[in-house]
Write a protein that binds this DNA or RNA. Structure first.
Lengths: 204, 204
DNA sequence: CTTAGTTGTTGATTATTGTCAAAAAAACAT
DNA sequence: ATGTTTTTTTGACAATAATCAACAACTAAG
């Protein structure tokens, strides 16, 4: 499913001939030409329609994705219910963690919540860049720091005692998501039921 | 309060003359001698008694700490209640994040839950190493990846729907902590009240 | 446009968890 | 050991949130 066969010239036409990844990375650290060349060569755009799943069991863990346009959520199946652990938007990089502490039972999934344009980043590319270019490790370190902070925020948010306070925190932490994501997913992210969220909103 | 004035020979005597940080870092990537020398020179041991706070407002954000012995928790004051967002033990590196999305209202604190031996890592040192040694970025990147995963686990854990299931997940994710940490802190980490946790345990 | 499907709202009821209070048990200090 | 403090347990009750069900609003597809 994930496979393109474009000449280098065509692949990035809609992005002015450069993988949008490059400008994201450059915000963290300058890149040398060889890295840029490899990124252009080995990353590629993909698109998914709203509600589609980004990672098939086959491709699981083979790619990270830069979100160029749209919103994506990550969730974990806990028996019959889905637990949304994050919701990400443009300029964020997402992927499955796949190193959950308790192996087996819980699988992580990615789902497009709008029509999305993504850049697929093969893990083999990341590994190659990390092993061969010091800049890659600088960029990777800084990005991981940023993502760690946002994971901490998510871990804090869901420990706030009342559903209403969690919702209010959500509004200030993720003001841009409230109008783009359906309430059922926000409810799941806040660890409350859709009906409860609906009542909280009615009250405010 | 945090300040030592030991000759280089004395400082690490109890650790066979090397900062324990070095062996931790080496698990991720080999280090060159100059890095090791800087680490020995600019990190130093500190100890805190059980229940003491690790970071005074003055020193806030100036150090990370490697836990050599003991257990430490991180918590955030939400008005009058404390929300424990993580609990860490030996061989983990901890610190305040201090980049909470909503500035101001919520302060992060670190508290020793046992008598702890730590290695203090000045942020100025981390920055220096990152800027001058590529290995530091490799080590930092790999460590951040690991910490990101554990933050994801914490974000997932607290979204599990029932208190009992959260507790059971805690038991498998953090089996070593249950006998070292008082239930009130575990309850806070699980986002439930101490009394509820007590009842869940009685039931099982 | 019309229909089917999804998403969000509202109500009634139940279940879970929180709150307050007090006692028991365990840990700590003198 | 003895008394003191902290932690944990237990009980009665209240509050919050979940559940079930019906319906309204909105979207997507034919």
């Amino acid at each position: 499913m994930i496979a393109v066969n474009l000449s280098d010239e065509d692949r990035w036409k809609k992005y002015n001939n450069f993988s949008p990844l490059i400008s994201i990375f450059k915000k963290f650290h300058p890149l040398n030409d060889e890295i840029e060349r490899r990124i252009n060569q080995h990353t590629f755009p993909v698109s998914y329609k709203k509600n589609k799943y980004l990672v098939s069991p086959v491709d699981r863990n083979k790619f990270l994705f830069l979100i160029v346009k749209g919103v994506v959520r990550g969730f974990i199946k806990d028996g019959t219910t889905e637990i949304t652990t994050w919701i990400a938007k443009e300029n964020e990089v997402v992927g499955t963690i796949r190193n959950l502490w308790v192996e087996g039972d819980s699988e992580e999934y990615l789902q497009a919540l709008e029509d999305v344009d993504l850049i697929a980043i093969p893990h083999v590319l990341s590994e190659y860049l990390y092993e061969n270019f010091t800049e890659a490790n600088i960029v990777g370190r800084k990005m991981m720091e940023q993502y760690y902070r946002s994971a901490e925020e998510r871990a804090y948010l869901c420990r706030i005692s009342s559903a209403e306070k969690r919702y209010k925190r959500f509004l200030v932490s993720f003001p841009d998501l409230i109008n783009r994501v359906s309430l059922k997913h926000i409810a799941s992210f806040l660890a409350i039921r859709l009906e409860t969220l609906s009542r909280i909103r009615a009250k405010i």
